[in-house]
Design a protein around this nucleic acid. Structure first.
Lengths: 169, 169
DNA sequence: TAACAAGTGCTAATCATTTGCAACTAAGTT
DNA sequence: AACTTAGTTGCAAATGATTAGCACTTGTTA
């Protein structure tokens, strides 16, 4: 399921009646070269490509990214920002998310038993697993201390330490 | 955290500087009287209310439902339909979801160890848990057999038996 | 190499959700 | 019990991510 090359990607696409296009190949490359833990929204991907001089229309990006997620090549992340993010789907490196309802900060964490439980559930129903994601909704103590969002100073941002497995930026 | 009455709701709201309004009380009632396992989108809630003669503006519904989710009273579900659904948040009755990327069918299931793992993670970081949801993305064999979506007859719908680990009581 | 369905890139829709604002009303205070 | 002042509501208008329509282009397979 993992190291897609232009050829294996082509094979996988063709077997379903889909085609390998330069755009799809380029998009796959971007994700393959993204540092582990990073993820891109459709719009961010569009920007990244522009900066490289590669122009792929936003429509095509949306279509490609969605297709690749359905094929199990990409993982579609529903973070708290109101739009989806994508990253390579590498089951061995699955991480999950904790989101604070107040400061809105998202922290990644790993937990192998989640994948195990998912496989258990899926096997039992004769399905094939593509991805699993646990989202834990929380309140962090620092945000509680500051009061609820309606009272938060607009420039305040939670300084809560990010737990180790957290990602980028 | 559970049996909210008008009074406990008021107390909880007031303690944060928010107010108990007839609209909020009405909305809570709707959810409290919803059969277990059901959930409503903002729009559906709006319709339900209209049919009862209670008119609450859609804006207010969006605002209330989001507030109650942040307070931990409601659970916000991200299903595959492109809009959010809400239900009462009852940790003892948490269920999770399996979604097929091809037939798009969503199946609920229970698994107590998910909540346990979430609590473990949350405790470790000193956070307070509000909710946890595991989404398992899958492909069901029947949909595979029918070919990928682009080839699916438009009127076809997956008849895959719904697993009865599926939710509640 | 021809034939054709799939794919691309525009632009124009969708559509759920949010926001600005004037009027209204809980809650706490005299 | 009236008074004050934020929080709330309900419109209508604005967002913003994602999708759809369509003419043109291009992989794939025969």
């Amino acid at each position: 399921m993992l190291p897609y090359t232009a050829n294996t990607l082509k094979a996988e696409l063709n077997s379903r009646g889909w085609r390998l296009t330069p755009q799809r190949e380029t998009i796959l490359h971007v994700f393959q070269n993204l540092p582990h833990g990073n993820h891109l929204s459709a719009d961010e991907l569009h920007h990244v490509l522009s900066q490289r001089g590669e122009t792929i229309s936003l429509s095509t990006i949306y279509r490609s990214v969605k297709l690749m997620a359905r094929m199990g090549i990409l993982r579609e992340l529903e973070l708290a920002e109101g739009h989806k993010h994508y990253e390579l789907n590498r089951p061995q490196h699955h991480h999950h998310h904790m989101v604070c309802v107040q400061c809105n900060k998202t922290v990644e964490f790993k937990n192998d038993s989640i994948l195990k439980q998912s496989l258990k559930q899926v096997d039992r129903d004769g399905l094939q697993l593509i991805d699993c994601q646990l989202t834990v909704t929380t309140i962090c103590p620092e945000a509680i201390r500051m009061g609820w969002p309606s009272e938060l100073p607009s420039n305040w941002s939670c300084t809560r330490a990010i737990s180790e497995t957290a990602a980028e930026e």
